[in-house]
């Protein structure tokens, strides 16, 4: 059961040794940019995912610092190559202090 915003991750279950493969990751988030004004002229406070990190067995694949210019429901596609089977960890850091984590295993044949 997923707690918090919906996360979707796509990557192959098995890859051949030395293969380069694509990972896609997305989280549902409104990415309130902090520049909008509400009906009373007050500033709507910023609330975004400010960091997305993907690691394989504790070593970074990609580390993204997000700013308000990233569209809502931030989506990333990127490439990886791993020397052996193991586990990918995906972490999203929210401005509100929440940290959302997902893991996915991959086999190398």
């Amino acid at each position: 059961m997923t707690v918090g915003p919906k996360r979707r991750i796509k990557l192959p279950e098995t890859v051949a040794a030395g293969d380069v493969f694509t990972i896609k990751a997305k989280i549902t988030h409104h990415m309130e940019n902090g520049f909008r004004l509400d009906q009373n002229g007050g500033r709507v406070p910023r609330d975004i995912i400010h960091r997305f990190h993907c690691s394989f067995e504790g070593e970074t694949v990609i580390d993204v610092a997000l700013e308000p210019g990233v569209a809502s429901h931030p989506f990333f596609a990127f490439e990886a190559r791993v020397p052996r089977g193991g586990e990918f960890t995906f972490t999203w850091y929210d401005d509100d202090g929440m940290v959302h984590t997902e893991t996915r295993s991959i086999d190398v044949i």
């Binding site: 380069v20 690691s55 394989f56 070593e59 970074t60 694949v61 990609i62 580390d63 993204v64 610092a65 997000l66 700013e67 210019g69 990233v70 569209a71 931030p74 989506f75 990333f76 596609a77 990127f78 490439e79 990886a80 190559r81 791993v82």
Partner: peptide
């Protein structure tokens, strides 16, 4: 955004 690529990143390529 800024992106740092680690050692398991095969090609420095990102789509968003």
């Amino acid at each position: 955004l800024s992106v740092r690529f680690g050692r398991h990143s095969a090609v420095s390529h990102v789509v968003t």
